[in-house]
């Protein structure tokens, strides 16, 4: 699975990296972020592209797993 490591970055970088990744990757993508609001922003970005995702808490933040494009 393609991975975007946006841990430690500040807004809007996690969203910018997610945007970029979704443009080039139709398959599943895992995005790692540090803060809860970054997780929410990444989720919004994913939904805005008409894709779905599932988020889980990790040791040092959150992982948002974006489902493959339909």
């Amino acid at each position: 699975m393609k991975e975007v490591d946006a841990r430690g970055l500040s807004c809007p970088e996690p969203v910018m990296l997610t945007e970029e990744a979704m443009k080039s990757e139709a398959g599943a993508i895992r995005v790692l972020v540090t803060e809860p609001h970054q997780k929410m922003n990444v989720e919004k970005c994913v939904w805005d592209h008409g894709r779905n995702c599932t988020s889980t808490e990790t040791e040092d933040g959150f992982a948002v797993v974006i489902e493959p494009k339909k």
Binding site: C11, P12, V15, T18, E19, E35, P36, H37, Q38, M40, N41, V42, E43, K44, C45, D48
Partner: peptide
Amino acid sequence: YAEMGLIPGGAYR
């Protein structure tokens, strides 16, 4: 832009 997730952390606070 809000729908794209371009929201400052302060908004959530």
